[in-house]
Simulated assay, not measured.
Amino acid sequence: MLTHKQLRAKALRDSEVQAEFEKTREEFALLDEFLKARTQKGLTQAQVAEKIGTTQSAVARMESGRGKHSPSIATLSRYAEALGCKLEIRLVRQRGRRVT
């Protein structure tokens, strides 16, 4: 049986899988940061939901990335504040891409 790491490496050899992975890499990295910060703070999804004025299921959808809509910047900011953090958003130039 393959480990998760082995299965991922095998799947990423496929160029189509690699392209899809790259499209979502940054989004899931951000969601993972939120989940880790919440866990480190010792808060449940329900506790975060109460702090930001939403439901536990909404927090679960946000952390999983499976919601129909992406959370707003205001929602992400409230979530970050509930964890004692500050949300920072910035533009980073992509290497090798020309703007036309």
Rank of each mutant, 00 (worst) to 15 (best):
A29M: 09
L35K: 14
K51G: 00
Q47M: 05
R38M: 08
G42F: 13
K36W: 11
R38A: 06
E50M: 04
K36N: 08
T54K: 00
L35E: 14
E50Q: 06
V48S: 03
Q45N: 06
A19K: 12
L35R: 15
A19N: 11
L43W: 02
L30N: 13
L35V: 11
K23L: 09
V48P: 04
G42R: 08
A19V: 07
E22G: 03
L30T: 15
L31C: 12
Q47F: 04
A46C: 01
F28T: 10
T55C: 02
E27F: 09
T24N: 12
R38Q: 13
G42I: 10
L31E: 08
E26T: 10
T39P: 02
Q47C: 03
L31K: 14
A49F: 01
T54R: 00
K41R: 14
G53A: 00
K51M: 00
T44L: 04
Q47A: 08
L30S: 12
V48T: 03
R38G: 05
A19P: 05
F28W: 12
R38E: 13
T24K: 12
F21W: 15
A37I: 15
K41M: 06
E33V: 07
A37E: 15
E50P: 01
T55S: 06
A46K: 06
E33W: 04
K41H: 08
E50A: 05
L43H: 06
A37N: 13
Q40S: 12
E26P: 04
A37R: 09
G42Y: 07
A46V: 03
T24M: 10
E26H: 06
K51H: 00
Q40W: 03
K23W: 03
D32H: 12
K41W: 03
L35C: 07
E27I: 11
D32M: 14
T39I: 09
D32Y: 13
L31N: 14
T39C: 04
R38P: 04
L43T: 06
G42A: 05
F28D: 10
A49N: 02
K51W: 00
T54S: 02
E20D: 10
A49C: 04
A46G: 07
E33T: 11
G53P: 02
D32S: 13
E33P: 05
A49Q: 02
E22F: 08
K23V: 08
T24I: 13
T39L: 09
F28Y: 15
E50I: 02
K36R: 15
L35M: 13
G42C: 09
T54Q: 00
K23F: 07
A37K: 15
T44Y: 01
V48E: 05
A46P: 01
K36Q: 14
Q40P: 02
L30G: 06
T55H: 02
Q45R: 08
L30D: 07
I52K: 01
D32A: 13
Q47W: 04
K23E: 11
E20T: 08
T54H: 00
Q45P: 01
L31M: 11
R25H: 11
A49L: 03
T39H: 14
L43V: 07
E20R: 14
L31Q: 11
L30I: 13
T55A: 00
A19G: 05
A46L: 02
R25G: 09
E50W: 01
F28K: 13
A19T: 07
R25T: 04
L30C: 12
T55D: 01
E26L: 09
F21C: 12
K23D: 08
